[in-house]
């Protein structure tokens, strides 16, 4: 392991207009769950700058293989086999090493293993739907899964979610914490989804669309999708305003 001195600078202010607003009535659940007053800001203290870091000892050998991690021995999940890989970077385009990335998704029919999901599509007895990994020294991660299906959901009378994988990402500071969703290149369902459309800027939405990568595809095995993730960046401590003797 490279011995890089951890950075301790505060984070760049979050560009909230790039994120979906709290109140986005096209996604009905936001109506009674969106704070209505302006959030309060103050400079990052160590409570915000620090954050939990996880060691690889928490990982099991199948944590990054959703085709097998819930399957009976000798069996595997049903669906198109895909590798999802990418790099976690910060806003200064520097790799974010050794951070936990968690993911969850519906099965190939669009059904979640959850007692509140009553969709007609059947459960796959060999598919649980969650996995996790930790980025390497260069911020890279990858996992094997099956391509999830689209599914209908109660919002409008005929709203469908495009195929997607949910992602939870840790940085090195607690205020870098992020949850998002990854979509698939070429899916026409993306642009009509009320949840996707909570994001105001089309360019921001495009950063959530993973690219099909035939070069990273494993022949006769699994196609690859590349999904890079950008977390908030830190100011360099060179510019911190606490001067000696102050």
């Amino acid at each position: 392991m490279r011995n890089v001195k951890p950075e301790t600078g505060g984070f760049f202010q979050r560009v909230r207009s790039w994120h979906p607003p709290a109140f986005a009535p096209g996604y009905k659940s936001t109506v009674v769950r969106s704070p209505q007053r302006a959030p309060i800001s103050f400079g990052n203290t160590l409570s915000e700058i620090t954050g939990p870091v996880f060691g690889r000892e928490i990982l099991g050998p199948l944590d990054n293989d959703l085709t097998l991690n819930y399957a009976k021995p000798g069996e595997s999940a049903i669906g198109p086999r895909i590798i999802v890989y990418g790099q976690v970077l910060d806003e200064r385009a520097r790799p974010v090493p050794n951070v936990l990335v968690e993911f969850w998704q519906a099965n190939a029919g669009g059904r979640y293993r959850h007692k509140k999901d009553g969709y007609l599509a059947p459960l796959d007895p060999n598919f649980g739907g969650c996995g996790r990994t930790i980025t390497d020294e260069d911020g890279n991660y990858s996992f094997l899964t099956i391509q999830p299906g689209a599914y209908p959901w109660p919002n409008g009378i005929n709203d469908w979610r495009p195929a997607h994988i949910h992602f939870s990402i840790f940085g090195h500071g607690f205020v870098q914490r992020l949850i998002t969703q990854m979509y698939f290149e070429g899916d026409p369902m993306i642009w009509q989804c009320p949840i996707v459309r909570t994001i105001p800027d089309k360019r921001a939405i495009e950063t959530l669309v993973a690219a099909l990568d035939m070069e990273a595809t494993v022949p006769m095995d699994a196609r690859a999708y590349k999904f890079d993730i950008v977390l908030r960046g830190r100011r360099s401590t060179m510019f911190e305003n606490k001067l000696e003797g102050n």
């Binding site: 200064r92 385009a93 293993r113 007692k115 949910h166 949840i195 939405i205 950008v230």
Partner: peptide, 25 residues
């Protein structure tokens, strides 16, 4: 500079991903 990846809701099934044992996985 890069732009932060935009957030999306954790959705109704966030526990499948983050506390799977709670939802019987």
């Amino acid at each position: 500079r890069l732009k932060e990846t935009p957030s999306q809701t954790a959705g109704p099934y966030v526990h499948i991903g983050l506390t799977p044992n709670i939802c019987e996985i």
